[in-house]
Amino acid sequence: MPILGHTQYGKAEVRVVRIHRDTDPHVISDHNVSVALSGDYADTHLTGDNTRVLTTDAVKNTINAFAKEAGDAARTPEAFGLALARHFTGVPQVSRVRVGIETFPWRRLEHAGAPHPHAFARDGGHVRTTTVTRAGDGAEWVTSGVAGLVVLKTTDSEFHSFYTDRYTTLAETTNRVMATEVTAQWWHAEHPADWDTAHATAITAMTSAFAGHHSLALQQTLYEMGTQVLATGPGIGEIRFSLPNKHHFLVDLAPFGLKNPGEVFHADDRPYGLIEGTVRRDDAPAPGPAFDPGQAW
């Protein structure tokens, strides 16, 4: 006889833009929020009894209302996610809530040589990510992150002395272009006093490590980036990376009578190497279910 396994439901990708007009200059918080609820919902699956089901439309409405009601908490995705998670675990049949937020950065436009207080442009450089998980007993786990952060270095990267078999054709190199699109998630063993500052500090640490590290492999650079993020303070217990190789292949210009000493490249989007890994503080407590190592990235 079939047995019902783990289930969850909720509302995905609720786009909510909050303009904070209580300060001058104004501030924009642009969030894409997804909420998943787990708990005692067997009846709706097995018999169609929806008595315990909080509608996904109500979940959407709550997100929109909390953009106003949460006040300053809506300014940062971590604080906004915590406010939502604490609300939804107040629903009696909910035993666990997972709130995922993508936050899209905006930058101020300039006018007359100075940042304008009320005019903005979307900054397409990367997306800030947050996941808040809260259990019914009040235990909370917060992860911050980044996606779509493309970085490249024109030198100081090597790749050689690797294992070979009869299918290996890749040439060794002591000087290559190394580029990747960083997806990273870091778990806060302790909540920082300022989420924005903590996020900016982590980004600066990982990009500085990428820039300054002489790399013998992207794997080695991943570890160095993680090490530098953990060195920013004891509050971050663990960081995970997913780093695709953004391959740049040297173009053969010989047919045109031209030399190409590492100047003209073809940027190829697929297939690509995918390097993933975790760097963890050795004295950090267990991160809990929000950072299950078996979860997809």
Rank of each mutant, 00 (worst) to 15 (best):
T168A: 13
R280H: 06
V94E: 04
V91S: 04
G138H: 09
E172N: 10
T201Q: 12
R86M: 00
E69F: 08
L149H: 05
G138R: 12
A83D: 07
P117L: 10
A139Q: 13
V229Q: 02
R52A: 15
L82M: 12
R15Y: 06
P192T: 10
A147F: 00
R75M: 08
L243S: 01
S29R: 05
T232S: 10
H214D: 12
H20Q: 12
L152H: 04
A42D: 15
A205K: 00
T7R: 13
F80R: 01
L253A: 08
W195F: 15
N50P: 02
R108W: 07
G257M: 10
D292R: 09
R18V: 14
I63F: 06
G48E: 10
R240L: 04
L46F: 06
R107W: 01
E190P: 03
D292Y: 07
W106P: 01
H45G: 04
A171I: 01
G100T: 07
N50H: 13
V14D: 07
R240W: 04
D282S: 15
S208N: 15
L109S: 07
G90F: 04
S161I: 03
G48W: 11
E263L: 14
F66D: 02
Q295M: 11
H188F: 13
I239T: 03
V142M: 08
R270T: 11
D292C: 09
L82W: 00
R122V: 10
N64S: 11
S38M: 12
T180P: 04
L243K: 03
P105Y: 02
T47P: 03
H247G: 02
H20I: 08
Y272H: 13
F249A: 12
A119H: 12
G100N: 06
T169Y: 06
H31D: 06
G10L: 03
Y223T: 11
F88G: 00
F80Q: 04
L54S: 08
D137G: 06
L218P: 00
T207K: 03
L82G: 00
L109E: 12
F162L: 12
